[in-house]
Simulated assay, not measured.
Amino acid sequence: MNIKKMDIVGRKSYHCDILFRVIDIKGDSHNKIAILYGQDYRLIADAPFEDLVVVNQSERTKKSMQFRSLEEQSLELFRQDIDLLKEKHEYESTGGYTKTLNYFQIPGRVLHLDGDPIYLKKCLTLYEKIGIPVNGIHCNEKEMAAKVGHLMDLYRPDILVITGHDAYSKAKGDIHDINSYRHSKDFVQTVREARKKIPSLDQLVIFAGACQSHFESLIYAGANFASSPSRVNIHALDPVYIVAKISFTPFMERINVWDVLRNTLTGEKGLGGIETRGILRTGMPFNGHVNQVE
């Protein structure tokens, strides 16, 4: 079968339930193995060529439209949440007076490290739509721990996202053993390095993990939110929805974990976390020229 890098394929043994991108090909001409990245899920897998089928454009479009619809629903629910937060905060800031006051808001600055450049681009587009200041860095999962300290010094984030691709492999061992996971160990080490610089869970909010990641280890390493409690796949954009909720919650308020999870595409099976303080700060007066210094 003539399968090439960057082809979009499905696995016959799984009834082509997930679309994958071929990112590497290993083995010889008699035993070729494709390394696969999920198109919409943060999942990494491998499969023999004989288990793969190239998915045609019409089928890809059909599946893609289903996901875009889910994304739009989630984004709309999130926008409603933000509008309610803003109304509540404006009422409290003005003491309930109807007089219009000129005020400005500073959401949390985000540093997003992603092992997948295509997913990173999707996430950056969504951050821009929502209005969150972000620096996005494509970084191989195995290099993140070595680079995170320097990047934190450079960008001084309020929120750190550590994500990419991951997967649990039954062949490697027990589900509770972190060595049975593709990149969970790398994410855990990156969280630990970040916490060496900023130990406080409120001064730096961390989201870490990808599909099927070892949730407990990430939380105990110092992440505020992580994937994946039930070892299920998470959607490529789920980290952005979590970060956005934190970024637009006032810093005097604590965030109920369910409030963060309910408008994500994956929900509590794929995402979880601990009680965390919001990041948003409001000031006044607004003169039309408030910019964050890079």
Rank of each mutant, 00 (worst) to 15 (best):
V232A: 05
H235Y: 07
E253V: 00
N233M: 09
V257C: 13
S227P: 05
A226K: 06
V232P: 04
F225G: 02
Y220P: 00
S200F: 12
A210F: 07
I255Q: 08
I242R: 13
L237A: 10
S247M: 10
S228T: 07
L201S: 13
D186Q: 08
M252D: 15
V257F: 09
F251K: 11
H235C: 12
A194K: 07
Y241S: 10
A221I: 03
E253C: 07
V191T: 06
M252Q: 15
H235N: 14
F251I: 14
I206C: 01
I255M: 15
K196H: 10
I206L: 03
D186V: 02
Q212V: 01
R195T: 06
K196P: 05
A236W: 12
Y241G: 12
R195G: 03
G222E: 00
Q203Y: 06
G209M: 10
N256H: 14
V257N: 07
R192I: 15
V243S: 13
V205H: 01
D186F: 12
H235D: 00
V240Y: 04
T249Y: 14
H214F: 04
Y220T: 12
A221M: 01
A236N: 14
A226Q: 04
P199V: 03
I198P: 03
K197T: 05
N233L: 10
P239R: 15
D238F: 14
A244K: 12
N256G: 08
P229G: 13
V205W: 04
P239C: 11
I242N: 05
G209C: 07
G209V: 10
F207M: 04
I234G: 11
D238L: 15
A223G: 06
I242S: 09
R231D: 00
T190N: 02
I255Y: 10
Q203K: 10
F207P: 04
A194Y: 06
F207C: 05
F248C: 11
S227L: 09
Q189F: 02
S227Y: 02
A236P: 11
T249P: 15
P250Q: 02
V240Q: 10
P199L: 01
Q189N: 11
D238S: 14
K245E: 13
D202M: 00
T190H: 04
A221E: 01
L204Q: 02
S213Y: 09
F248A: 05
W258Y: 09
I219S: 01
K245Y: 15
P239V: 14
H235T: 09
I198V: 15
L237G: 08
S217H: 09
H214Q: 07
N224F: 08
L201A: 13
S213H: 08
D202T: 09
V243N: 08
W258L: 12
A210H: 04
N233V: 11
I246H: 12
D202H: 09
F187W: 06
K197Q: 08
I206S: 02
Y241T: 13
T190W: 05
I206A: 02
G209R: 11
P239N: 05
A210W: 02
A244I: 13
F251R: 08
M252F: 15
A236L: 14
F248V: 06
A223K: 07
I242F: 07
Y241Q: 08
A210K: 09
S213T: 12
V243H: 10
V257P: 13
E193N: 00
S217D: 11
H214C: 06
I219Y: 00
V188H: 00
A226S: 10
Y220V: 04
I234S: 09
G222H: 03
T249H: 13
C211E: 02
G222Y: 05
A226R: 07
I242G: 08
